[in-house]
Design a protein around this nucleic acid. Sequence first.
DNA 1: GGTGAAAGATAGTCACA
DNA 2: TGTGACTATCTTTCACC
Lengths: 169, 169
Amino acid sequence: MYFWEMSFDTEKEKYSMEVLDDTDLALLRLLGNNSKLTIKELAIKVNLTPSPVFERVKRLEEQGYIKKYIAVLDAEKLNFGLIVFCSIRLKHHDKNIGYEFVSDILKIDEVVECYNISGDYDFLLKVHARDMKHYQDFVFNKLGSVTSIGSTQSTFVMSETKHSCNINF
Amino acid sequence: MYFWEMSFDTEKEKYSMEVLDDTDLALLRLLGNNSKLTIKELAIKVNLTPSPVFERVKRLEEQGYIKKYIAVLDAEKLNFGLIVFCSIRLKHHDKNIGYEFVSDILKIDEVVECYNISGDYDFLLKVHARDMKHYQDFVFNKLGSVTSIGSTQSTFVMSETKHSCNINF
DNA sequence: GGTGAAAGATAGTCACA
DNA sequence: TGTGACTATCTTTCACC
């Protein structure tokens, strides 16, 4: 059972959960694939008039279901086609060194995503670089100066076969 | 030297490379972070009037630098907060089994991204699930019926510390 | 929650420089 | 390539249901 299928004792409880109905979910799915759809077009697709659709979308933005609107850029065309997953082991495992690592990583442009993971390594980075030379420079000069790092392991992407930017719910 | 810094012998050559100037790059950076910026607002930021900005953005869309416009959704709020990286080794390595695998993977909603990688495994999947139970179901029932898979290994994300949706160029 | 109309802003076109 | 004006369309508001 998902949270939007739960039953609530009071209206207040329901309100605090900011429950989404099927129309809200439909709007999120539509905008998650194509945010250029106009309020008018959305209204037709969900069988409503523009006004309530406008209110719903505004509410979904305010409540944070929609985090932002972006143009999805073509990394290859922009000469940033090399994707590398970089696994990282920290030197130690105290809280401070973790914070230090994250704060350093946030500043590095090549790092597009960073995850704290289970298993042999502590963090997994998704890195975008122009080419091998650029990636080498990234490892030596950028990661090289992050002192909290113990060891790294690079997994190179040979081809990207699927990339949906949003969850498919 | 990046391709937009190259010099060209002829205008035709230049055209075929669809070279981007600084204004184009600025527009891509702006829209990559916030596609709700109006043509008017963009024009002010790049010191132009709306008309040429409109033409430039339209050209960037047509030439594929902008692939699409999307609303970035909050996976946690939508109860899809569990992220798992699933490494996959195929049974064999002929071309057909690779195609078969990719075609099966494309159909699975939980798989948000799929990469053909170097190293011990053949593919790396980024999976979004509601919870462990859902992930277990995904592994047994969805991956379980992809016959081309030899073995898998799951790396669970404990926290996402960075996620820029686009490249930072 | 939803409808429909009205006003204000934006996108998109075009003649001209 | 860029400017400035023009029109069509869309967003956003609001009184009413």
